[in-house]
Amino acid sequence: MYTIHGALGSPYSMKMRSLLRYRRITHVWSHGSHMQQLAAEKSLPPVIPVIEYPDVSFRNDSTPVLYDLEERHEERSVVPPDPAQAFIAHLLEDFADEWLTKAMFGYRWLEEVDQVQMSRWLSFDALKGGGLEASQGMAKHFRERQVGRMGIVGCTAENFALIEDSTRRVMQALEDHVVNEHYLFGTRPSLAEISIYGQFSQLGVDPTAQAMMRADYPYTFRWMLHVDDMSGIEGDWDAADSSFKPVVEVLMAEFGRVYVPFLLANEAAAEAGEDTFSIDVEGLPYSQGTFKYQLKCLRELRHRYGKLDADTRAKVDPILAQNNCLEFLQ
């Protein structure tokens, strides 16, 4: 039995819970305030969730854990067997984890109404009692800390126009798709949908973002609630010779529009020894501090592309090329 040491307010915790639920991997959900302390005790990076394995080993960082579980459990994989579909699904998973997460931070901590409610709710979650005075006192300090970190993760008011426009394009692509079918690579979920869900699970709770979703993307909002628990889903993958669905084409266009310039600018700044970088996407500016983890993500994307055989590249190269995604992988 696995244990997910996570939190309702953590998109990656919700991602991993959805994953284990769909895969029917026996697990316990342990919601608490001790996760980062647990990570430190186990010499892990200070990120959540922390996954406790049946052998009482501990891991975190959701993407490596997802693939490790693929090695350990064969049933109900979330990686399409077709290597072309699997590669595109991985790109979209990375896009969700590293770019769409900025919408979660921005909607949660830029406006006072969201800062107040979510700091109080997250403190309530952590304390599980102790009285309103205690949780609201904790909320004040938590709110100040999170708001103070916004520049580090690039979720400033100046950047948010681009983040929000990008998020809305993703939601519109899903809104157009999910009224016809729920999944991207067949009639069963992949790592891409599960990772998108992880981020959007938070937008479906926070006041401003939830109101936006309910008003403008109601079926994406409802779809998200289905992805939370897909343990009853039985389905098939699309045939290997199938074309990518239109929704995948649109999502890859967004990947190329915002995420490729973001990754390349971060890489160039790191190589030049610069502390910050900036991009401009269709007239909307974005800047943040250089971030080492995204360098790791870029290396991993290039490594995965480099391992593709000629036949697989022949299938993925057209969608990559038409969306500004080919050269950065080579």
Rank of each mutant, 00 (worst) to 15 (best):
residue 305 Y to R: 14
residue 50 V to S: 01
residue 249 E to T: 05
residue 36 Q to A: 01
residue 41 E to F: 00
residue 114 D to H: 06
residue 265 A to F: 06
residue 64 P to V: 02
residue 45 P to Y: 00
residue 177 H to I: 03
residue 153 V to E: 08
residue 124 F to H: 15
residue 10 S to R: 06
residue 52 E to H: 01
residue 257 R to L: 02
residue 315 K to G: 01
residue 196 I to S: 09
residue 306 G to Q: 13
residue 106 G to M: 07
residue 277 F to A: 13
residue 152 I to W: 15
residue 246 P to I: 12
residue 194 I to S: 08
residue 29 W to R: 04
residue 62 S to P: 11
residue 78 V to L: 15
residue 3 T to E: 05
residue 295 L to N: 08
residue 173 A to V: 07
residue 45 P to Q: 01
residue 169 R to D: 11
residue 312 T to H: 05
residue 293 Y to D: 09
residue 280 D to Q: 07
residue 24 R to T: 06
residue 161 A to C: 04
residue 256 G to Y: 01
residue 303 H to S: 15
residue 193 E to V: 04
residue 100 L to Y: 04
residue 84 A to V: 00
residue 44 L to C: 00
residue 314 A to I: 05
residue 258 V to F: 01
residue 149 R to P: 04
residue 173 A to Y: 06
residue 101 T to H: 07
residue 316 V to S: 05
residue 148 G to R: 03
residue 6 G to N: 06
residue 14 M to C: 11
residue 201 S to Q: 13
residue 271 E to L: 15
residue 210 Q to I: 13
residue 223 W to A: 08
residue 76 R to K: 14
residue 151 G to A: 08
residue 191 L to K: 13
residue 255 F to K: 02
residue 270 A to F: 11
residue 291 F to K: 01
residue 133 E to Q: 13
residue 329 L to T: 09
residue 309 D to P: 03
residue 222 R to T: 05
residue 74 E to P: 09
residue 247 V to Q: 03
residue 329 L to N: 10
residue 177 H to D: 09
residue 126 A to K: 01
residue 251 L to H: 10
residue 169 R to E: 15
